[in-house]
């Protein structure tokens, strides 16, 4: 399954990176593939293109602040979590996201 995700955290950039790494690690060795965009103080890293988002089977936001350039996600079923829960149990995040998306 193709997954795209955005991570962002109100309290600091480090959490956004931890959530991104956790999601990437969670799909390692599975049939899923993931690209994670990190939105932080320094801008957007590993930016998702409109096409990548359109092609994704599952869209996850692990954020507790507004997502930048939201219009890219128009028409997609976005499953949202907080960054903290994702950091320490990203496998659960992905399982729950799939359930919520009916996949």
């Amino acid at each position: 399954m193709k997954i795209v995700a955005v991570t962002s955290c109100a309290t600091g950039i480090a959490h956004s990176y931890m959530a991104a790494e956790a999601l990437t690690k969670a799909v390692k060795g599975t049939e899923d593939e993931i690209k994670v965009e990190i939105q932080g103080a320094m801008g957007i890293e590993n930016r998702l293109s409109k096409q990548e988002i359109a092609d994704a089977d599952l869209v996850i936001w692990a954020v507790d602040v507004g997502v930048r350039d939201k219009d890219r996600f128009e028409g997609k079923n976005v499953i949202q979590f907080g960054p903290y829960e994702t950091i320490w149990d990203a496998k659960k995040t992905i399982i729950e996201a799939k359930e919520k998306a009916g996949l």
Binding site: I13, A14, H15, Y17, M18, A20, E21, A22, K25, G40, A41, M42, I87, W88
Partner: peptide, 16 residues
């Protein structure tokens, strides 16, 4: 700032 974030992000990633 960019270098700073790179150091911080490497450490943050390690921690999970």
């Amino acid at each position: 700032g960019e270098e700073y974030i790179r150091v911080l992000s490497r450490l943050a990633r390690l921690l999970i």
